[in-house]
Simulated assay, not measured.
Amino acid sequence: MSVTTRPEAPGRPEKAPGRPRPRVLSVLREVPHTGLIAVLLLVVVFTAVQSETFATDRNIVNILSQISVDAVLAAGLTLLMTAGGMDFSMGGNVAVTAAVAAKLLAGGHATSSAVLVALLLGTAIGLVNGLVVTFTRVAPFVATLASATLLDGVALLVHDGSTISIGTRMSALGNGKVLDIPYLLMVAVLVLLATALVLRFTVFGRDAFAIGGNEHVARLSGIDVTARKLTLYGLTGTLSGLAGLMLLSRLGSSSPGGTAGLSLQLAVVAAVVIGGTSLAGGYGTVVGTALGLVLLGVVANALNLLDFSSNYQPVSVGAVLLVAAVANETHKARASRP
């Protein structure tokens, strides 16, 4: 008994195996921060249609200037969270360093002395947080939240119930421009760029990813985890001091219960989380953080231009955080599918 095979019909060549043609959705899956960018574009388009002044050069620069202080804090927090850390006291650190610097300037001390004291004080506060987290094994969330409460109280003690004005001292930093670009914005961009380069191209950045991914394995691989953690917390403290000086130079004064403190901290955490940096550590992105900052800045500006009550500000931050976080997680889940 013989077995015969049917010849293929003429004009129907066998299909050669090959990769399917890429579809638009498949391509979008590969683009980082797709959900965040989509939300940002929706807010921008809606606000631009509703307000003629939104898309002007002056307003765009104003938005970026408004988020410059947040950007400096968010850069440090992105680096720290990548390594599995957390610092809820950065806003309180800003309040204390700004108050101390204002006190020194109002008392007639040199600007350079006030700047140096603020940076050293901010670094010291960050190192104390790092020591507590590293050697007592207290959860970073708990330790730094306690520090935030303590620092808010210290700031009130420094102010002693009154606003401290510095006049025109440091006004060049707070109001100066080069080619219509504010100095504060330039500082923020440089800090974000430096953080991105550290994460991407240095051993220190790779160590941060390794510690955040698995601290025990990182220690076994020869990384000095304790030294790295202390350095990271000290760096976040230094950037908090810098942010305090930037805020002081922009406002020209430091007041009890001002724009620093827990409200500033929550906005920074929201921007970093919206940008996709993992709360569990092991993953961080400065580009995502920058997009998160811009999104929150655009939303705040839109509320002002559209004459919404300031009471909607925290509502908008929470809503944007929730929507963008869900969008990012959905995008990650789809991108991970084969």
Rank of each mutant, 00 (worst) to 15 (best):
T123W: 08
T136C: 10
L127V: 15
L157Y: 15
L127C: 07
V133I: 13
L151A: 00
G153N: 05
A146K: 01
A143F: 10
V154S: 00
S162Y: 12
A148S: 12
S147G: 10
A155I: 06
H159A: 04
L156Q: 14
F135K: 11
H159F: 13
T123L: 11
L156T: 09
P140E: 04
V154A: 05
V142Y: 10
G130S: 07
T123I: 07
L131I: 15
A143M: 07
F135G: 03
V138I: 15
G130C: 12
L157K: 11
A155N: 06
L150A: 13
L150I: 13
L157H: 11
S162N: 13
L127M: 12
D160G: 15
L127T: 07
H159K: 08
G126Q: 04
P140F: 09
F135V: 03
R137H: 15
N129G: 06
I125G: 03
D160Y: 05
V132H: 08
A139N: 15
S147F: 08
D160W: 09
T163L: 13
L127N: 06
A143T: 07
S162V: 11
T144I: 09
I125P: 09
R137K: 15
V128G: 01
A143H: 03
A146V: 03
A143Y: 09
T136R: 12
G126R: 01
T163D: 14
G153C: 00
G161S: 12
V133A: 01
A146D: 00
D152L: 12
F141D: 10
A139F: 14
H159E: 08
A124V: 13
L131P: 11
G130K: 06
R137I: 03
V142G: 00
V138T: 15
L151V: 03
F141V: 11
V128F: 14
L151S: 02
G153P: 06
D152P: 01
V158S: 05
V133Q: 04
G126V: 01
I125F: 12
A124K: 02
A155M: 01
A143K: 05
V154T: 05
L131M: 15
T144R: 03
T163H: 03
H159D: 12
V128Y: 04
L150C: 03
L145H: 10
T134Q: 14
V138E: 11
I125V: 12
H159R: 03
L145I: 11
N129S: 11
V132C: 10
A124D: 08
A146P: 01
P140H: 08
G126P: 10
F135W: 15
V128D: 02
L157V: 15
N129P: 14
T163W: 01
A148F: 07
A155H: 10
L151H: 02
A155K: 01
L156C: 06
L156I: 07
T123A: 11
G126F: 04
I125Q: 07
V133K: 04
P140M: 09
D160M: 02
T149D: 01
A148R: 00
L151K: 00
T123E: 06
